[in-house]
């Protein structure tokens, strides 16, 4: 699925940087019914993880009340050059990944 990641391309060592992520997902709550009364099964992202050069730096659990196409923003300290890896896991075996690089001077 499409994801939009915003990580600064360059940062000074020790800088606090903001990371913003936006991903496509319908986030069907599981509380809605169709016109003929059948329950629309829940289909949401349940977990989001961000790893910085392999080390987990941020994790979030997501719930049915979260809107479609979840947007998450968080902060970290730029320690070294390398890669941020993002992973979204959800219902029905949903899994989506993305990555972004940073150069730390």
């Amino acid at each position: 699925m499409a994801a939009l990641i915003n990580v600064p391309a360059k940062a000074k060592r020790g800088d606090i940087i903001e990371i913003r992520t936006l991903t496509s997902h319908i986030m069907e709550t599981g509380f809605r019914h169709t016109v003929d009364g059948a329950l629309v099964p829940r289909d949401i992202i349940t977990s989001f993880t961000c790893r910085y050069n392999g080390t987990e730096i941020f994790r979030a659990d997501l719930f049915p009340a979260i809107a479609a196409n979840p947007y998450l923003s968080f902060f970290t300290v730029a320690r070294e050059s390398g890669k941020f890896e993002f992973e979204w896991i959800g219902d029905n075996g949903y899994s989506s990944t993305a990555s972004a690089s940073i150069t730390v001077e």
């Binding site: 499409a2 939009l4 479609a68 947007y71």
Partner: peptide, 16 residues
């Protein structure tokens, strides 16, 4: 902000 505009997710899909 194109990185927070959810419409851009559709633009990315359209590009594919």
């Amino acid at each position: 902000d194109d990185s927070s505009n959810p419409g851009m997710l559709f633009v990315l899909d359209g590009e594919a």
